[in-house]
Design a protein around this nucleic acid. Structure first.
Lengths: 290, 290
DNA sequence: AGAATTGTGAAAGATTTATCTCAGGCCGGT
DNA sequence: ACCGGCCTGAGATAAATCTTTCACAATTCT
């Protein structure tokens, strides 16, 4: 590969290590909205990246350009070359790969899943599920199966920060903790069950139901049998060009829910969030907002 | 269709008749190499179209712009919008909810993350990573951190079905299994590390590197320090309107990788999957899929 | 503590834009 | 063929903008 074949984007990424913090911040900002942001005035670029004007000037020279206009000229050339290429190219996600590449086919499918899932989602039900899960008076049980165990754990991990009074249950475990039987009316079970659906999960749901607990179910488009017991079912489309199903879409829902619950419980979690901010500061990747 | 939806290209073509000969010549030249040529200096554009400088100035004003820079700004905006792709064109995903609903905002961000991640992905590197991970002669270690543990486990779960000779390592564990030290040259480590980056993970990577193992890293846009040791880094964009980051995009990559590896090893995988099905049937853990 | 990085403010320098004037060319009508 | 109106380009120039680079202080890193 000659130097000519390389896009500026590649070049920037390669040299990312040689750059200082502010320069890296700038570089990422350029990549963020590429290549449009680099084609405007230098001052605008600096402002957009929250760095100073001299930092921009310094960086482009570090990248080997005579000056900012020189850098822009290169960007324009590249833009021209791209446009000349496969013009009416069907939506490829990874531009550098053919559309038959697994990355593109897979991403196509996932986007399609997301679109389809959201189109059939009932926002009111979603909001209600969030409200239940946010209610600290209700004990919260999170239940995952063999594959969905990872999703359940992911949710549990975050909920732990947001609120107390919750339990992570693995439905595959053949010895459910005794305290599970202490579930009371009004408690909330968040259950994950996608095909192939698990008998243990169903049994657990039945027990929860019998004790008057609320059930929120994350399932797939074919719907786990648990959905007959569930108060709220959140259904995702999960088919992809693979021998397995995709949990990317359910994960999106879970993360959305975490975000929503976090907003509801903001007062309570604010303190913890500030601690998190401090932790982020320690990574020294960001400027402090002044 | 409002005026906003129209591209500059459209606008120019519409008004082509109102333009004089030299202006038309200029307009066609702009469309010829669109939009790169319009983003350079005015004089360069004039020269490229074989018209004079005043002609350019006159035309952009005729098109309703205050001046050439104004015209360029519009072009840049449009370029930014194009880069986002048709999908991200501010669409409400959950139609039943307002666009400010967390579901819509979150999904917007995730789609944007996916687009951005794929745009900067090097398919060749991805393919090579898949090839390494598929190679059963190399022992495969999968390493996750506190949050990414779930992703690591998810990958491990699937790889178990596809191939033997692999190990799941939790970097947070302070007692790494002894056999980890038996890593040989040519073995492969798949390491997950997103902010905030974990020291244990870095140490583990250093040890792996020292023993001559290959390192494949899943990280975020700010790149874990491990990336300096990694043979292949797969970076994802993970920012969402939430107090936490989103693993949906890395998960998409992981699932794509699983799918790719599964194709490479299909002959072997097929048998293993069938065995697995039998085992599951025997344990009656799962309901038969009818 | 010392070194490196970064931001501020400013000023000089370079480039670019917007305009003007004017001459030459094109074109339709007489 | 000639005229008059309009378009166009050349050259010049003033104004505006942008880039580059200072020095120095503040901040951050080691």
């Amino acid at each position: 590969m000659t130097d000519e074949d390389r896009t500026i984007s590649d070049r920037i990424q390669e040299r990312l290590d040689d750059l200082t913090r502010a320069e890296r911040q700038l570089a990422l900002s350029i990549l963020e909205n590429y290549p449009a942001s680099g084609l405007g005035p230098l001052a605008a670029l600096a402002k957009g990246a929250n760095v100073s004007v001299p930092t921009v000037a310094r960086m482009v020279q570090k990248l080997g350009y005579k000056g900012y206009p020189d850098f822009q000229a290169d960007l324009r050339d590249e833009l021209g070359a791209i446009a000349k290429g496969p013009i009416a190219k069907h939506e490829t996600w990874a531009g550098a790969a053919p559309s038959e590449h697994i990355l593109n086919r897979f991403t196509d499918a996932v986007i399609d899943n997301i679109r389809n899932t959201l189109a059939h989602m009932d926002p009111a039900a979603f909001d209600e599920a969030c409200a239940w899960a946010a209610d600290q008076n209700r004990h919260l049980y999170i239940v995952g199966g063999r594959i969905t165990h990872t999703l359940a754990e992911y949710l549990f991990l975050h909920m732990q920060v947001i609120r107390p009074n919750l339990t992570h249950v693995q439905s595959t475990s053949n010895t459910w903790p005794h305290y599970l039987l202490n579930a009371e009316e009004g408690d909330v079970f968040i259950i994950f069950d996608v095909r192939r659906y698990e008998n243990n999960t169903l049994k657990l749901a039945e027990m929860a139901r019998a004790r008057g607990a609320k059930i929120i179910l994350f399932t797939d488009q074919w719907r786990s049998p648990v959905h007959r017991l569930a108060d709220i079912s959140l259904t995702s489309r999960i088919i992809v060009p693979s021998a397995w199903d995709s949990l990317a879409t359910p994960m999106l829902l879970v993360e959305s829910m975490i975000s929503a619950i976090q907003s509801l419980n903001w007062d309570a979690t604010k303190g913890r969030m500030e601690e998190l901010e401090e932790i982020f500061d320690q990574t020294k990747l960001f400027r402090k907002f002044t």
